[in-house]
Amino acid sequence: MRGATALVSQRQDSLDVAFVIPRSGPEGIFGPSCEACGKLAVDEINSASGVLTRELRLHVVNGGQAPERVARDVDALVRAGKVQAVAGWHISAVRQQIDRVVAGRVPYVYSTLYEGGERTEGVFLTGETPDRQVLPALTWMARELAVRTWCIVGDDYVWPRASARVARRFARRSAGIRVLDEVFVPLGTEDFASAVRRVRGSGARGVLMFLVGSDAVRFNRAFVAAGLDQRCVRLSPLMEENMLLASGVANTRDLYATAGFFEALVTSAGLDFSRRYVERFGITAPALNSMGESCYEALTFMARLAERAGSIELDRLCAAADELAYESPRGVVRMVGNHLLQSVYLARAEGLEFDVIAQLAGPPRS
């Protein structure tokens, strides 16, 4: 691994991480939650002796910028020896650019749900993938709600398009499930009138949303304004509590979401995490959600992996990663290859909150 040992040896008293989270763009709506959860992880890790006795420190990089700009910012920090690792929530278009500048140099923990298929050595993926998130949800909707026809509406970049391909392949193999139409819009779209017309014209009973942040909020408003909530359900793998609040109580009818964590998740680990979050930041803190929790997850994973490897050198981290298991706010999680397997849940929006109604993917096997 080129340069890895030299990079980590420059600071023996701390482990400095480029923490790439959205502070602008459509995904900026949940950036404050990501930052708060990152701070909580740092507090807890450092109070428990740090990462191999090193103080964990975050250097926030705005992941909502253009992907090339984000990669340049991360590369500059790595080149200057200011950071020895990268982590955080950002879209796949940003991940692909960061991959190009950090591969083989420093560990990179990508916390975001994503389209699957990432195999770059030294990149560890702690988010959900369609095979354990979207596909089981489609099966549940067909069985429990008799929703078998879908129109896909997504932002036009790698995660929505690749995830839509996974859904299409699944529908072709599944008796009775069909994708009738697909609509992709530029990231940052404000006017969804054309997309809503396509949904109406498709005749689909459900809309599979691959929309990010404020794009999903605007779509929700346009969807309900057109009266489509009277005939269609919506299903999103990227819908969280801040987006419900922004959508408004009138615009969340028959809206379903699937994720590895919800603030309303009634498990001992989830409830304890929510309690610690409120104790640390108070009741006026940014709404806790799966995107924010995933940032906590990424940093916790990094600390657990370093503990198992006895080092933060990239070669040793890669060797120690497979089959790492621990208890997290998402329950028991386990690393298989470079992906963290976890339980996944389905929730239905009830006004401005989620009600978790089913477990779609069980805990990883021991």
Rank of each mutant, 00 (worst) to 15 (best):
A80I: 05
L40G: 09
R79E: 14
G31S: 10
E55K: 15
S111E: 13
L58F: 05
G25K: 03
V51Q: 04
Q12M: 07
C37G: 11
T112H: 08
G50R: 07
K39P: 03
S47R: 15
H59M: 07
R95M: 09
V94R: 08
A41C: 12
Y108S: 05
V94H: 06
A71W: 02
Y114L: 11
C37V: 12
L56H: 08
P67G: 06
E27I: 12
V74W: 01
S111P: 09
V86R: 01
P67M: 01
G28M: 08
G104Y: 02
R54S: 04
T112I: 06
Q12D: 14
P32A: 10
A18I: 11
N62E: 11
V61Q: 02
L113S: 15
P22Y: 00
G116C: 09
G25W: 10
D99G: 05
A93Q: 03
G50A: 07
A18E: 04
S47Y: 00
R105C: 00
D73K: 07
A18H: 04
E44G: 10
G116N: 11
P22M: 00
Y110P: 11
C37Q: 14
V74A: 01
Q96E: 15
D43Q: 15
N46M: 03
C34H: 10
G117F: 00
G38Y: 04
E44N: 11
H90F: 15
G64K: 01
V70T: 13
A93G: 12
S49F: 07
E44Y: 03
V106N: 03
V106P: 04
G116F: 04
L52K: 07
D13S: 13
S14P: 07
D73M: 05
G25N: 08
R23T: 10
V83T: 07
R95N: 13
G88D: 06
D43R: 15
I98C: 02
T112G: 08
A48M: 05
L58T: 03
V70Y: 06
L58S: 04
D13K: 05
V106Q: 03
R54L: 02
C34S: 14
S92C: 02
W89P: 04
P67I: 02
R105M: 05
S111M: 08
Y110V: 05
A76R: 15
T112N: 15
Q97A: 11
G116E: 13
S33E: 10
R23E: 11
S49K: 14
G104N: 02
L58H: 06
Q84C: 05
L15Q: 07
A41N: 09
E44T: 10
L52V: 05
V106I: 11
V109L: 13
G25R: 03
G50P: 05
L52F: 02
R95Y: 08
G116Q: 12
S14L: 08
Q84R: 02
H59D: 12
A36T: 09
Q97K: 13
G38N: 13
C37M: 13
T112A: 14
Q12G: 13
P22G: 02
V60K: 10
G64P: 04
E35R: 11
A93I: 01
G81C: 11
A76M: 12
G25T: 08
Q84K: 02
P107M: 03
L15A: 08
A103I: 01
G116A: 08
A93Y: 00
I98M: 05
S24N: 10
I98F: 02
D43V: 03
T112V: 12
D99I: 07
R11M: 04
E35P: 03
L52D: 06
R105L: 13
Y110G: 09
S47D: 15
G28C: 09
E27M: 12
